[in-house]
Structures are given as structure tokens and as C-alpha cells.
Design a protein around this nucleic acid. Structure first.
Length: 300
DNA sequence: CGTTAGACTCGGGCAA
DNA sequence: TCTGCCCGAGTCTAAA
């Protein structure tokens, strides 16, 4: 599922395909893909046609490119979104699950298909404003222009302008389970269910523990683990469990075989051999080792 | 304001 | 073999 490493892998591929190109046309095959767009598919098509595209930028799981009409084209993968340059001609029937298609000039690809089985992904235009901290809005460009559609998204763990000290404090102000806080994209962005579970395991912290009961050092360990795991995953193209996540070339990431807890409930802990447990937190599964991650106190 | 539950979607997996 | 229910992902919206 696309979390930060997967989104960054896609961003790098998209940057080569989109940066510096002109959108000659656009087709939207499924209205849900444009559900966040004012005026829906028709307005998205009308406003994007003829637009020139800048670099592809990412903050957390949110991606966008600045357009020559002064807005940002938001591109979110949701849980199953894929961008593929399939060299389609205008009017050609959509492939299975193809929700939208851009026609491009001035770049290496003549078309770019957005394929999204579950339709949690989205394409829409958003106005922009300079970042409040005066630093670049995200990874991929030096521009300060941050889309309104991503203004509620915190900087992510691979962002050099992230203030780790402030994030640490913010996390410890919450009484919610630490796992839920890690998934809150307005506090720290980029985590999804996979990397949150992995980081908590490495730090030896049970996900149900109230964030406010953790020490500064424990939270720092969780964040540091998140950085290292996401960097390692990124170097392997991310995590693919099924064909729902692939890069722009259709290739799967290979990090799944390095996962320590996610998807391994009932199997042996790779650290101590104890059988891994699973509980539900906020309707999301949390896999952990009851021996390495103590619910009340961290003894590791 | 912080927090939580519900809604959305659909194919794989499993139960009946 | 066929039917049908449940699960799970990320994010937005509504609500207490």
C-alpha cells in the first residue's frame, strides 16, 4: 500500500514523465477520481488542458505539480493508485481500472494513465500559498508554494526541514494510542499501517500506549526507527503485497520480505521467537510482539 | 481545539 | 460449485 517510500518511488518516476511537459488533453473515466475537484471531471479537464507542468513535489503521501495556470495538480494514490505511461491514443478504450488519462507533449511519454482499483486515489486542482516556515513545500522542488489541499499535512520524516524536536513534543501531548498518533498525517506525515507497526516494533513500544506516557527518548527512538525503515524501503522501491502498488514502470517494490511484524501475526518474532499478536486500534490492525513491546512499560 | 467513528470502494479469502 | 460476508487500505466528513 502506498505510504511514504512508495509515494516517493512513484514521485521520482512521475517527475521524469511530467516535469516540463504540456497537457494536451485529459480524459476522466470515473467521476470519483475528481471528487475533490470543484466542478468535477468537466472542470478538471477544462482547466488542465493546455497547462504546462513544473516539477513533481511530495509531502508525506501527497504529490502535486505546479501548473502554468497558477494552481497545483494534486495526485494522490489512495490505496491502489498507479501512474503508468501506456502510450494510449485519445479515444482509446480505458484499460481495466483506468480512471483518468493525461495526454502530454514535450516529454518522454505521450500519455499517462491513472489506474486505481479502489478509487481512493484522486486528481484535483488546488490553489497554493507559501509555506509558513519559509522552507520548501516538499521533496522534489525548492518552491515554497504549498497547495491548500496539502496545507494540513505535516512535514514527513524524510524532509530535511522537519523539526524533530517539535514533532516529538507534539506527539507526547496526545493522550491517544501512539499508533494512532503516528497515523495522524497532520502531526507527522508519511506513516501508514505498515511502517507505523514496523517503527513501533523496532523501538520496542506497544502501539496501544498513550503517547503522553512515553518519554522523549522513546518517541525519538520511534521516529528514528521510522526514518531508517523508510529509507531502507525506499532503496528497494517500497513494499508490494499484491499488485495494488507498483511504480510507473509497473514494477513491484521488494521491501515486503524485510518486514518484521506487519502481516506476520501468528508467526514467530524475528527478535525473540515469541508468537506475534494482533489487536485492533481505531479499526486498524496492530501487529506487535508481546514480549518485545510491553503494553504498560517498555523494558527493552 | 483535539479526538473518534463512520463512510467510501472492491476483489481476495474464507465460510456456508 | 456457487453465493455471500468480511476484511483492509488512506483520507475526508460528521459528530460528540
Amino acid at each position: 500500500m502506498p505510504e511514504l517510500p512508495e509515494a516517493e518511488t512513484v514521485r521520482r518516476g512521475l517527475a521524469e514523465i511530467l516535469a516540463g511537459t504540456k497537457i494536451e488533453g485529459l480524459e476522466v473515466f470515473h467521476p470519483r477520481t475528481a471528487r475533490y475537484q470543484n466542478g468535477g471531471s468537466a472542470q478538471l479537464t477544462q482547466q488542465l488542458s493546455g497547462a504546462h507542468l513544473d516539477a513533481v513535489v511530495r509531502r508525506g503521501k501527497f504529490m502535486w505539480t505546479l501548473t502554468s495556470n497558477g494552481q497545483a495538480l494534486m495526485m494522490h494514490l489512495g490505496m491502489s493508485g498507479q501512474f503508468r505511461p501506456l502510450a494510449k491514443q485519445a479515444g482509446e478504450a480505458p484499460v481495466r481500472h483506468e480512471r483518468a488519462r493525461l495526454y502530454l507533449s514535450g516529454g518522454p511519454a505521450q500519455s499517462l494513465s491513472f489506474i486505481d482499483q479502489r478509487t481512493f486515489g484522486a486528481l484535483y486542482l488546488s490553489p497554493t500559498a507559501n509555506t509558513e516556515d519559509g522552507a520548501p513545500a516538499g521533496c522534489g522542488s525548492d518552491s515554497l508554494l504549498l497547495p491548500a489541499g496539502a496545507s494540513h499535512i505535516a512535514r514527513d520524516l524524510l524532509d530535511p526541514h522537519l523539526d524533530l524536536v517539535k514533532v516529538n513534543q507534539r506527539i507526547r501531548k496526545s493522550k491517544s494510542p501512539i499508533k494512532n498518533v503516528l497515523l495522524n498525517q497532520s502531526i507527522i506525515s508519511g506513516f501508514g499501517n505498515i511502517y507505523a507497526d514496523e517503527a513501533l516494533f523496532v523501538a520496542g513500544v506497544h502501539g496501544a500506549r498513550s503517547a503522553s506516557t512515553l518519554t522523549r527518548q522513546q518517541v525519538a527512538q520511534i521516529l528514528q526507527a521510522g526514518i531508517e525503515i523508510m529509507e531502507r524501503s525506499l532503496s528497494r522501491g517500497g513494499t508490494s503485497f499484491d499488485q495494488l502498488y507498483v511504480d510507473v514502470n509497473g514494477s513491484a517494490g521488494t521491501f515486503a520480505d524485510e518486514l518484521l511484524v506487519y502481516g506476520r501475526a501468528g508467526q514467530a518474532c524475528r527478535e525473540c521467537g515469541h508468537e506475534l499478536s494482533s489487536i485492533s486500534l481505531n479499526k486498524r490492525s496492530h501487529v506487535y510482539c508481546a514480549n518485545c513491546q510491553r503494553p504498560s512499560r517498555n523494558l527493552k
